[in-house]
Each structure stands twice: as C-alpha cells, then as structure tokens.
C-alpha cells in the first residue's frame, strides 16, 4: 500500500535544474516528473526545500506548480488516487499533501474538488475547505452503485 512507496528512492527528472546550496533549495523546471514507487507527480516547476541535507533526503518539502500539476499514487492493489491543482505541496516526512488552486482529487470514480484540499496519505483522509473570499465551494461526487457494489475487498 501507500506506506511501501515511501521506502522507495525518489527520482526527479526535468529539462533543467538549479541548485541553491545555501538556501538548501533545488529548483527544477519544464516537464518535471517525480517518481517514488507508485507515486508520480508531474509539474512545470518543482522546488525542493529541505531543512536537513538535501542530498540525504531528510525532511524534504516538494512544491510542484503547473497548469495544473498532477499527482497519482496507488493506494491499495489496483486502487489509484489521482489529483491535480495549480500547486501541490508534498511534505515527505509528515506525508501530507496540500493541493491549492482549483484542486481536484479522483479515486475510483469518486471525486472531490475545492479551492484547497489536504490529503493525509497515511490515514487515507482528505479534508477540503472553501476559502472565505472565493465563491467556489467544496464539491464531492460519488457513484453509489459502482462503489457500493464492487469493492468488497479491504
């Protein structure tokens, strides 16, 4: 399941890369792809910030932005979670994903969309809020027949 992924090495590919050692920050741009096991993030720009040694991968925070940036991970066998937003902030240590800016999450036909979505990967829990200033509310769409029927499993 999701936790297995986090033992895997993280690989990052992009067209060009920029290292800023003092600020302990790496900026990667143009069709950026991050992989870690079944986790896959695509974005236009990625900023990796770390309070520890960047190269050792401690406490890194990935800030991916794109139009939109996308996220995908296999939660259980065959159960895929997909998401997209203009900014995806992923904290590898707390394993919390924050999607900001017409964020959307899709999971076996069920869908959540809002201005801001927080995804607690370990607990498989998602919270979504409406920003005070924006009119756009949280929308969730479920397909009862499909869900209720198919997944006896877990």
């Amino acid at each position: 399941d999701a936790s297995r992924d986090f033992q895997q090495p993280i690989s990052i590919e992009a067209d060009d890369q920029e290292l800023d050692i003092q600020a302990n920050r790496v900026i990667v741009r143009n069709n950026v792809i991050i992989r870690q096991g079944s986790l896959l993030i695509t974005a236009d720009r990625l900023e990796v910030v770390s309070d520890g040694d960047v190269s050792q991968g401690e406490g890194e925070v990935f800030i991916a932005t794109g139009s939109p940036a996308t996220y995908q991970q296999e939660v259980e066998d065959g159960m895929l979670v997909e998401a997209s937003a203009s900014e995806i902030r992923y904290d590898a240590s707390t394993r919390i994903l924050v999607l900001q800016g017409n964020a959307q999450m899709l999971q076996s036909g069920n869908q959540v969309s809002a201005n801001r979505i927080t995804y607690y990967v370990d607990e498989q829990r998602v919270t979504a809020e409406r920003d005070q200033d924006s009119e756009e509310r949280v929308r969730t769409i479920f397909q009862p027949r499909q869900n209720g029927g198919s997944n006896q499993g877990n």
Partner: peptide, 10 residues
C-alpha cells in the same frame, strides 16, 4: 454533494 467544508475518508 457540496458544502463549505468536507472531510473524506476514502
């Protein structure tokens, strides 16, 4: 379903 706040446990 729409709301101001939602908390989803898949």
């Amino acid at each position: 379903i729409q709301a101001d706040h939602a908390e989803v446990l898949w």
